[in-house]
Design a protein around this nucleic acid. Structure first.
Lengths: 178, 178
DNA sequence: CGATATATAGACCAAACAGTCTTTAATTCC
DNA sequence: GGAATTAAAGACTGTTTGGTCTATATATCG
């Protein structure tokens, strides 16, 4: 997964995968089929990790606003400095393959849907607790946040400072939370 | 430019470029050097087009709020349906190359800076005209908008409907404008 | 211990890659 | 119209690509 993450699909060559998996050529093909199948597996793992992490951060037992803060803090962490420069397998894959590869396109689409649903849920709970600013609708705010955090990953490629990213996130949240 | 835009750097092969430029192999190398130089030229053109369009949309002679609406409407148009699926050369390049290719990284970084500066300027004018919601700071709002529109391009890869994108943009602007 | 199954290392393949060079055709210029 | 310049077409090169296959070593098991 790591090698696809760092270099993207097309730029990752078989020797890179052999080095990363410490498998021989034959064993790799016996275990995973071909490069594309292996990539799909890596992408699935990346997506599963991301969704699991989001579930923890936005867990319904904690304060929804704290959950949103934790969720966004995670993005600040992953989009600043060297981590930011490394980028995001999901966003890179969306841009590189989602338009042409249906298997990939479906995965990307359903990930965004899942993230939006999780955020909408947390936002509704925040609204029920009276913590949302006037006129904020959970569903559209969730879509805004999805776009915003994916945009953070793009801008993160220029390795902004953590404090700048954090300030941006705080300023955004400030418009939605009371 | 179009062929790099549709397929990305690594996935674009010499034959694709020959077809697109209608040049022979020799002429293409005589005119542009190598693939990488030609790509940089295409990227520069794409960036110049984007900045020029932004300057028009946010031009200081018109109402700043109208300018922001026009700017965002352009993004709605380019990130919905088939256009959305085609994606954005700049974002795709940021994800594919910005981390490893310094020439590309600089161009991406300065583009984001220029966009942020243009937006910050329009937002300050809106603030001076009393059109910004309470507590909105032009500089941080500009950073938020940069992230948001780049995120729109990512999510646009799943070809959302125009009305959904427009609603999201409206909901965001609603938090900043009065 | 000896036979069998398994996994490794890496030779090997055809195709595609970026880039060069030569040959032929089309222009331009006098 | 004929000489000189330019551009086109595509053959060619060495490398690298994803993928297969064979020979060797390692491990498993009766």
């Amino acid at each position: 997964m790591g090698v696809f993450w760092s270099r993207g699909y097309h730029a990752t060559a078989l020797p890179d995968l052999l080095r990363a998996t410490k498998l021989s050529r034959g064993s790799l093909y016996a275990a995973f089929g071909d490069k594309h199948s292996l990539f799909l597996l890596a992408l699935d793992r990346y997506v599963a990790d991301a969704l699991k992490r989001m579930d923890v951060e936005l867990a319904s037992r904690r304060e929804p606003v704290d959950g949103l803060r934790a969720f966004l803090a995670g993005y600040v962490d992953r989009t600043s400095g060297a981590k930011g420069r490394r980028g995001c397998l999901l966003v890179a894959t969306a841009m590189e393959l989602a338009g042409q590869d249906a298997d990939v396109g479906r995965r990307i689409g359903s990930f965004f849907e899942a993230m939006e649903a999780g955020l909408a849920d947390a936002l509704s709970r925040a609204k029920a607790a009276g913590r949302l600013a006037d006129g904020v609708e959970p569903s559209s705010a969730a879509r805004i946040l999805v776009c915003f955090v994916e945009g953070l990953r793009v801008v993160g490629k220029t390795a902004p400072t953590r404090s700048a990213s954090q300030a941006t996130v705080d300023a955004l949240l400030d418009r939605f939370i009371r």
